[in-house]
């Protein structure tokens, strides 16, 4: 019996053994955020949390229960929330503002730009329910433009953790940065890719799987679709390298350039519009520093709609099948 070629999983990262299985263990990034927030609240009395009526959705309830004096319910008023956060940050507080990504940073973008980012204030803006994940709610709740918009704001760090454990580490790191930080989270429970032992450094992207034939650069929980596609590609003799970009800004150029030099073909994968987000960032860097063919997986200049999460990912071309086909069709056109 012929053995299937094994995935070259990066052992240095101490990843979850089951990450490339078809039924990986699932855990919520929102829950990770809520747990870390509670821990940070215990450690540091300067940590404060603001919420615009979505405390149960964004998992800030435990913090609110434990630290009622440091939890501010502003009601359905995201613009006021961003401004109050700026004021609190200006007097030394470490401030989290939380909502659906569609409402914060999108509805209150001008307040974030002027009151927070222009003043370079350390406010951590958490946009939950990003991407297609609030699937049944339809297009207005699905946020597909946030990466593109937030990464163009000066002073601002953009985080997009891959899973439960990484969200915990990103949340802990966010309060140490002393910068405006945007972090996007998913609504659904998502595959566990990293473990508690996996290292995390805001400045360093992570090679999850090593390969020579093409580079798949991905961000957020959708990385799992890239891992599934990679498994199938490997079985068919194509060996992709998979890079997880948990920090879109500042971008780890070094790792990207190293990988692209080797593979000469890059596919980007994100639950976001094709333009301006991760794919945009990768294309900008490569076109300036080492022109390489870049193919972008993402929604194609379209709004979403209601459906199940899996149905939407399939219809809008951001699942493992789409990644697999794109790779197979282009592997010989480098």
């Amino acid at each position: 019996m012929q053995l299937k070629p094994a995935l070259a999983v990066n052992t240095n990262l101490l990843l979850n053994d089951r990450m490339h299985g078809l039924n990986p263990s699932l855990k919520s990034t929102k829950k990770a955020f809520g747990e870390s927030l509670l821990a940070l609240g215990k450690e540091d009395e300067n940590v404060v949390v603001l919420c615009a009526d979505l405390n149960s959705s964004t998992k800030t309830d435990d913090f609110a229960k434990n630290f009622p004096d440091r939890f501010f319910q502003v009601g359905i008023a995201e613009q006021n929330m961003a401004g109050i956060a700026a004021g609190l940050a200006a007097c030394g507080k470490k401030v989290f503002i939380t909502s659906f990504a569609a409402f914060s940073p999108m509805r209150n973008l001008d307040q974030i730009r002027v009151s927070i980012c222009f003043s370079d204030l350390p406010v951590i803006m958490v946009g939950a329910y990003a991407g297609l994940s609030p699937s049944a709610d339809g297009a207005t709740a699905q946020e597909l433009e946030d990466i593109a918009i937030m990464r163009t704001l000066p002073n601002t760090v953009v985080l997009s953790p891959v899973d439960y454990e990484q969200t915990k580490k990103a949340t802990e790191a966010s309060v140490t940065l002393s910068k405006p930080v945007y972090m996007r989270l998913c609504r659904e429970d998502t595959p566990e890719i990293t473990t508690a032992s996996t290292p995390f450094d805001v400045k360093k992207a992570q090679t999850l799987i090593e390969g020579d034939d093409l580079t798949i650069v991905c961000t957020g929980p959708i990385c799992h679709e890239a891992i599934i596609a990679t498994k199938k590609l490997t079985e068919n003799g194509i060996k992709p390298e998979v890079i997880n970009v948990h920090t879109i800004k500042p971008f780890d150029k070094t790792l990207l350039l190293q990988s692209a030099t080797k593979t000469r073909l890059v596919i980007t994968v994100e639950e976001h519009q094709q333009s301006g987000g991760l794919g945009g960032a990768v294309a900008e860097i490569l076109s300036e520093e080492m022109p390489t063919k870049v193919l972008r997986i993402g929604t194609r200049d379209t709004f979403g709609e209601s459906g199940t999460y899996a149905q939407l990912k399939n219809k809008y071309g951001v699942d493992s099948e789409a990644i697999y086909s794109l790779a197979v069709n282009n592997i010989n056109k480098k």
């Binding site: 501010f72 613009q79 006021n80 929330m81 961003a82 401004g83 109050i84 956060a85 700026a86 004021g87 609190l88 940050a89 200006a90 007097c91 030394g92 507080k93 001008d110 307040q111 730009r113 002027v114 009151s115 222009f118 003043s119």
Partner: peptide
């Protein structure tokens, strides 16, 4: 003490400072 120029934002910032 603050950035402004896009109107309507100062009172929210002031509230943050008052809460602080």
């Amino acid at each position: 003490e603050n950035s402004s120029g896009s109107l309507g934002q100062g009172l929210s910032q002031a509230i943050g400072l008052a809460l602080g």
